[in-house]
Design a protein around this nucleic acid. Sequence first.
DNA 1: ACCATGCCATAGCAGTGCTATAGGTTATCC
DNA 2: GGATAACCTATAGCACTGCTATGGCATGGT
Lengths: 210, 210
Amino acid sequence: MVSRVSPKVADPAVRTTLIETAARLLATEGALTLRRLADEVGTSTMAIYTHFGGMNELRREVRREGFARLAEHMNGVATSRDPVTHLSLLGWAYFTNAITNPNLYRAMFMEQPIDLEDAASGIETFQTLVTSIQRCIDAGRLSPADAVELATQIWAVTHGLVALHLTGFLELDQASESLAGASLNLLVGYGDDRRAAHRSIGRARGMIGR
Amino acid sequence: MVSRVSPKVADPAVRTTLIETAARLLATEGALTLRRLADEVGTSTMAIYTHFGGMNELRREVRREGFARLAEHMNGVATSRDPVTHLSLLGWAYFTNAITNPNLYRAMFMEQPIDLEDAASGIETFQTLVTSIQRCIDAGRLSPADAVELATQIWAVTHGLVALHLTGFLELDQASESLAGASLNLLVGYGDDRRAAHRSIGRARGMIGR
DNA sequence: ACCATGCCATAGCAGTGCTATAGGTTATCC
DNA sequence: GGATAACCTATAGCACTGCTATGGCATGGT
């Protein structure tokens, strides 16, 4: 039976406000609790349940919000004439985004196992990385290979350095330096000339004032 | 005023029982709560406070226990004549240990920021990796470089793959394959001959029946 | 005007880590 | 051997967490 009267419908603005406030609380206070969020938005705890069903689903939406911001951030890097420079810039964008929003990054990539569809939405921006690598291969800078596999390796080392920093095992400088070093060594392993790779990475670092 | 009588002293056996039970609960149930632990051991919640001071300190001890097991596991790998094979075996040992005890690994390397001294105790086994890499350099397989820096890069990519698997972003097979691939490419970047590195890694994989 | 519909405030549930208090145990001293 | 001081721990209760049953109420179609 389809409802024939349309009573008070959920205000979609409340939904986005909840997500954005949740992301802000996560960023500023480092934690996200149901009651704290309800107080901040000025509603009751039930609002979260009518709009999302529970905290898990709300956290999922916060993650999606984080993924969207990350995609926006990475799509914002200018395409360089040197494809390896562009690839390096993508790496720095990912790294910088994580360092700037550590709590959001934790929620996105370091929390308890997430479901498959959620992981898929997170890998969306992964395609940007794959495309950039494919461009390096097509330009003859890297040896022919599966771009997805190479992208996975670069993603892993970048995420690993970020994660080890966020958990306190690596200082920021160490993580940053190792990102440059590991990128260089991986690129050489991918077939790039060491000097050329070094120049491309240096160019990228120069472009972001590092 | 120094106490001149020595009353009932804390039973050290209770302490180790608490740590081991906590590690077991973390492994079997995936979560560790104060009351659950107290029930399991058959004591009251106060025991945790007299022995550790709180859940944070208990969790720290569980981490130390995990670090000890990891060190034991990695020190147990046989030294091969081929230093790169040994290095590869270390990587697989780390990877296997993490996959076998995912919850303990999470507690050790993926939880909220840990304090410096705790991170130091975790890096203890890191020295094993550094030594193995230094041996590769000394044997002429890898170009002269800072072994600590190279070890950081290998650690980062291995941890990154493990972490991405544990959070659901990578299937186990993908993580496993990328570990081999990234190791190969990094080794080439470190100066090893591609064929030689491939052979050394393959030898390691053969030794662990993979 | 009616009223079905669905949002949301209230109050309460079981669970969490933590703590104040009181009782019990034990090694030492006289 | 008894008294004593020091220490451990069981009990009960605190504030907090996510969650839910309930009922009031605003809304928009009839």
